[in-house]
């Protein structure tokens, strides 16, 4: 077996081990459940409200699934920064083909963790609201999720390379929350002013939400969307463009970041972090 193939296999092994770890340690387990539980509480209160004659709960649950899928970007970014801070990335650099294995492992653990998280939200969510057509369009669900992950995970890696400390990484949350607010997740985007709709449509969160609604809702619901349509072609276009951008930029940024890693770089960052705490 070639060394690169072996590294991909090692990476798959790493992904599986890290996935198992994240569901067996209390802190991470809490974070897996906390966010879905909060969303389910919101869903509970929204479920019987209506918009244009449609029940909001039915609209919101698939949107939440789409939003959570996009949040893989944030997890990826946070994990990369943390791994850079504690020296995991430098360890990968010191290992032959370690960076390749590391990235494969990260993608596997983040993507698989995300799918489990989606199930944690979706299964109780389906008991809470009626009127979703799960199973009717598994194909749409599958391609939207897959394309969404390819569009967002490399972007997460890019963001993770930009921030050198987990503290700085916290800054990412604000614009993401802002984007969620204008991406038609908790309320149809058509209720927002035109220029806000335009901004929302630039980013993947809106398109993942729209794609998930198209997978879970009957076609009649498309009337609350822009252009009264699920706009699959545009979804592929925008998510595809982000995917191409991420896949082109991420390797360059990651290589540049990895080149700068050394024992003294890691120690220097730790020293600065300790100074801030002290």
């Amino acid at each position: 077996m070639s060394a690169r193939k072996a590294a991909v296999r090692s990476g798959l092994g790493q992904g599986w081990i890290e996935l198992r770890q994240s569901f067996t340690n209390p802190a991470e387990l809490t974070s897996h459940f906390l966010w879905p539980v909060l969303l389910l509480i919101a869903l509970f209160f929204l479920r019987d409200r209506t918009f244009d004659g449609f029940r909001l709960g039915v609209l919101v649950l698939p949107s939440m699934v789409g939003m959570n899928a996009a949040m893989g970007m944030v997890s990826m970014s946070q994990l990369l920064t943390a791994d850079r801070e504690d020296g995991t990335l430098l360890r990968a650099k010191a290992t032959p083909n370690g960076m390749l294995g590391y990235l494969v492992g990260k993608v596997v653990s983040v993507a698989a963790g995300l799918v489990v998280d989606l199930a944690i939200l979706l299964i109780p969510g389906l008991l809470l609201v009626d009127g979703l057509t799960v199973g009717g369009s598994w194909v749409t669900l599958f391609w939207v999720l897959l394309l969404g992950l390819v569009a967002t995970l490399p972007l997460g890696a890019v963001l993770g390379s930009v921030f050198t400390t987990t503290r700085a990484q916290g800054l990412i949350q604000l614009p993401v929350l802002g984007l969620i607010a204008i991406s038609g997740i908790f309320y149809p985007i058509t209720a927002l002013p035109g220029w806000v709709q335009a901004i929302g449509q630039v980013f993947p969160i809106y398109w993942l939400g729209l794609g998930m609604r198209s997978a879970f809702l009957p076609d009649s619901f498309a009337s609350v969307e822009i252009g009264d349509s699920w706009r699959h072609l545009e979804t592929v276009g925008v998510l595809g463009a982000w995917a191409v951008f991420g896949l082109l930029v991420a390797p360059v940024v990651l290589r540049r970041m990895a080149r700068r890693e050394s024992g003294s770089a890691v120690a220097g960052r730790r020293e600065r972090a300790l100074r801030r705490i002290g």
């Binding site: 060394a3 890290e18 770890q21 340690n25 791994d83 504690d86 020296g87 995991t88 430098l90 360890r91 010191a94 290992t95 032959p96 024992g263 890691v266 120690a267 730790r270």
Partner: peptide, 16 residues
């Protein structure tokens, strides 16, 4: 790279 071994001043990785 496979023929080298590296031990830095301090590592804190892979705690879990």
């Amino acid at each position: 790279r496979s023929r080298l071994g590296v031990v830095l001043q301090s590592w804190r990785d892979h705690g879990n």
